[in-house]
């Protein structure tokens, strides 16, 4: 398996703060906005964004973890995925939701997440924020409102985001890799 590094600290830190600036531009003080990280890997990126925003705005922002496993459209059609915990400690009714995931590829997980979200209320608006946008891998008409980096990859390639919070012991601390 060949690995290629496409993003790492410090560029990753700069990317995160750039995304946060874009978010602030659209959501100002986040009075009516909540952050939802998508399980299993989007939560680490969501926590980073939340931490950065909290520092800039000097206030705690509400964050939730959403698991869309039970809402996937490929259940019984391919190997099932492991469900993860949902942690949505607020009602998203009439809120603006920023849905955060690490990698956007087919868009199917996002579709499932939009479905899963309705169990917690009807959001006023949903925006999608991803670190890596695999532009030519889409199955569904899904577009990211905020993205860290667009990459052009094949279906057979994998894009892996390794956060140090996940316990990856690598020399770059945080990194995004393409694996052939």
């Amino acid at each position: 398996m060949q690995r290629k590094l496409i993003l790492s600290t410090p560029l990753l830190e700069i990317t995160i703060s750039r995304i946060c600036q874009e978010l602030i531009e659209n959501h100002q003080d986040f009075a009516n906005t909540v952050i939802l990280g998508l399980q299993p890997r989007g939560i680490y990126f969501a926590e980073r964004i939340k931490h950065e925003l909290s520092t800039i705005l000097n206030k705690e922002l509400p964050i939730g973890y959403l698991d869309a496993t039970f809402y996937r459209d490929d259940f019984r059609r391919r190997e099932p995925l492991k469900p993860n915990a949902n942690k949505v400690p607020f009602i998203i009714e009439s809120k603006k939701v920023i849905l955060i995931d690490d990698v956007l590829a087919t868009g199917r997980m996002v579709r499932a997440a939009l479905d899963a979200m309705t169990a917690f209320g009807r959001p006023e608006k949903v925006e999608l924020c991803v670190l890596i946008d695999r532009i030519y891998n889409r199955d569904l008409p899904v577009k990211a409102d905020y993205f860290g980096k667009k990459v052009n990859t094949l279906d057979t390639e994998k894009v892996l985001v390794e956060w140090k919070e996940q316990g990856f012991l690598i020399k770059w601390n945080n990194s995004v890799l393409v694996i052939f």
């Binding site: 039970f70 469900p83 949902n86 479905d115 309705t118 169990a119 917690f120």
Partner: peptide, 21 residues
């Protein structure tokens, strides 16, 4: 798995579409 489903049935909307077919 039951632990995740217990969280589901304690939500205001208690349904998931997993077994729709």
């Amino acid at each position: 798995t039951a632990k995740e489903f217990k969280e589901v049935i304690n939500r205001p909307i208690k349904k998931v579409p997993s077994l729709r077919d």
